[in-house]
Design a protein around this nucleic acid. Structure first.
Lengths: 213, 213
DNA sequence: CCCTCGCTAGTCAAACTTGACTACAGGCTC
DNA sequence: GAGCCTGTAGTCAAGTTTGACTAGCGAGGG
């Protein structure tokens, strides 16, 4: 799974109703054009595709108020909301090497109830441990990695990365269980998008991490 | 960058001359269909594309000896070799979140001279530290991550991951400097492909890590 | 008043990826 | 000896991603 659908669904959902450029701006605001690789083309494509699949509802709108071609506004459907949560849960639970999906998922985690977030993260640690075990079982011979030569370094790297991920996940679980942050079932929801006309403080040509791709 | 070009160039290079199915088999042997996402379509596409770009030279060959359509054999060109090393060096040096590229690069690292491998890995640690610093500088306000709410967890995760990566890289550097493994400028090169007709011990329907994508 | 510049909003072709499909040969069974 | 399975070798359409491009409007300068 790439992170784009999750990001776009999440952005549209926060707005209630949004056109492509607004979504694009949110992603830029979130820095997602850097840590994910969300280019305009992908965003517009995702919007159209998801509209075709019934995840979004497209309203044809007159030429924009501020120059440029006519724009389409999108609204998330019930089906789209389901898909959003499906993607979010999947992203939180599965251990793969796509950092952008994980980043997006953490950004949206407060859309879930606190208890579910914790449960999903615990499932995540479980899966990481299973993956770790299967690396050792399937790839590493009984005599250890010595016989593999430098290829053993790959398994070494995988195990090291998995351990680090598991450790981070457990830390996050502790903080959430300890009462940190505000989740979907509790008070004021977190608002992470730019209102119409609001200025993006990060829109300048500033350097950001992730530029080094 | 995706890992496919690096993997395909590396496989063809080891064989001297190889047809698509052979490359495909090597990648399966390496488990790359699991930890990278190298599907047949991508492999054949990469071969054709790189042949068009002059990185590989294509020999049209008569119908195969063992059924199936006629096959094309590829040989790496000088330009392709240059590109291979360019990709390999880039993969070793740059810190991004694509685990498959890193895995492929570690697998091919012994194609470089030992001293260069160490230099590249040191550059890698440097870049990781720079990235880490720029996360803190650009994304985290002076008062710390507290004001960011749960979004602060993203930066926390990035820093944690970066530290873990840097630590692993330093460990690898130590082992290589300590004389481990056999590099390009030293003795027998490592052979990591299946000879024509050799059986792939991993070709069974066995489970492997990475299946959980 | 015209010209350029930057912002808004989005399109497009080319490249790449995915998953399913084709087609042929040999061997095995019934 | 017909049907069927496995292994070999690769194609194809559909979906996705990329990077460059278009086009309208308003502000500001000369």
């Amino acid at each position: 799974m790439s992170a784009i659908r999750l990001l776009v669904l999440g952005a549209v959902r926060m707005h209630g109703r949004a056109h492509g450029y607004q979504v694009r701006n949110d992603l830029e605001y979130w820095g997602a054009h850097e840590w994910s690789h969300a280019k305009p083309g992908s965003i517009y494509h995702a919007l159209k595709q998801m509209a075709k699949q019934g995840l979004l509802h497209a309203h044809e709108i007159a030429p924009s108020t501020a120059g440029g071609p006519p724009r389409t506004e999108y609204e998330i459907t019930e089906q789209g909301t389901e898909e959003y949560f499906r993607l979010l849960r999947e992203a939180l639970v599965t251990y793969d090497q796509h950092g952008d999906v994980k980043t997006a998922a953490v950004g949206f985690i407060v859309d879930l109830p606190r208890a579910e977030a914790v449960a999903l993260l615990k499932e995540r640690t479980l899966r990481i441990e299973q993956w770790r075990a299967s690396v050792l079982k399937d790839y590493v011979p009984e005599e250890g990695t010595a016989g593999l030569g430098h290829i053993g370094e790959i398994m070494n790297m995988w195990v090291h990365t998995a351990d680090s991920e598991a450790e981070w996940t457990r830390g996050l679980i502790r903080r959430i269980e300890g009462g940190a942050y505000t989740f979907a079932d509790e008070g004021e929801p977190f608002v992470g998008v730019l209102a119409e006309g609001e200025e993006n403080p990060y829109a300048t040509g500033e350097r950001h991490p992730g530029d080094a791709h």
